[in-house]
Each structure stands twice: as C-alpha cells, then as structure tokens.
C-alpha cells in the first residue's frame, strides 16, 4: 500500500495542510499547492451542482493511470484529499482514520486557530505513525 500525499482543505477552499509520504509526485511550490487546493474546491462545488444524481455530495474519486485521488468531505465542509496508488484498497477507511486524527490532535489543541494552517507536532507524529508502517 502506498499513500503518496495528504492534503487538507478548509471550508473556504484554502489549503491548511500538505504532506508527502512517498516519492512519486512532483514537488510543487507552496503557491501551486494553494492553487491546486483552490481549483479542486471549485471543481468540487461545480460537480455537486451539475451531478445528475439528486443530492449528490460532489466529486469523490479521481482516477488516472499513475495515481488516484480520494476526496472525503466532512459535514462541516472540511475536505481531506488523499493521493494514493491507482488500485489502493480500503481508502475510505484511511480517510476516516485521518479525520479521526484531525479531530483528536488538531481540533482538541487549544493553540490551533480554526480554519488556519495546521502546525501541530502531535498531529504530524500520529499521522506518520499511522501511514508509515503500512507501506
């Protein structure tokens, strides 16, 4: 199992967290990451509007030959983007677990300001501890 990268977007579409776990993705400049996040946010909003299925939550998976992007949106509008290998199984389980870690180590941290970039050592540590042994 290979997880390439994890991005977290706040409800306004701003990038608040980005971390690579493996080689395989091109490194972008920090500005490009922000553009990527903003673009995805816009595309997600459009897909949820034009979807033929009524009450659709919008774009969930984006697949290509090289990678696969899974988007997990929480009820509050925060988005978790997980870049993984094309045939990664159980990716929704990983999404939920990352969400759990976010709830535990970001939202319960009194020094974190909501909607702002995540700089929490504990979150980094727990995320790496969860992702790394699986590779």
């Amino acid at each position: 199992m290979v997880i390439l990268s994890i991005l977290i977007l706040n409800k306004a579409g701003g990038l608040i967290y980005q971390r690579d776990f493996n080689e395989g993705l091109n490194k972008l400049s920090s500005n490009d990451y922000l553009v990527l996040a903003g673009t995805f946010h816009g595309v997600h909003a459009i897909t949820s509007r034009i979807s033929p299925v009524p009450g659709s939550g919008g774009l969930e998976v984006l697949e290509s030959d090289q990678f696969r992007v899974q988007c997990f949106q929480t009820l509050t509008g925060t988005k978790f983007l997980i870049f993984a290998e094309p045939h990664q199984p159980n990716i929704d389980v990983i999404c939920r677990r990352v969400y759990e870690l976010y709830a535990d180590y970001v939202m319960k941290n009194p020094f974190y300001q909501i909607e702002m970039p995540i700089r929490c050592e504990q979150f980094d540590r727990q995320l790496v501890a969860y992702i790394k042994p699986k590779q």
Binding site: D104, Y105, N109, F111, C120, E121, Q122
Partner: peptide, 10 residues
C-alpha cells in the same frame, strides 16, 4: 498534554 501541541514560539 496528549492532545496539545505547543507552538514553536511558546
């Protein structure tokens, strides 16, 4: 302290 990450400046 289990859920707390102290920022670098503190």
């Amino acid at each position: 302290n289990s859920h707390i990450s102290v920022p670098k400046e503190m």
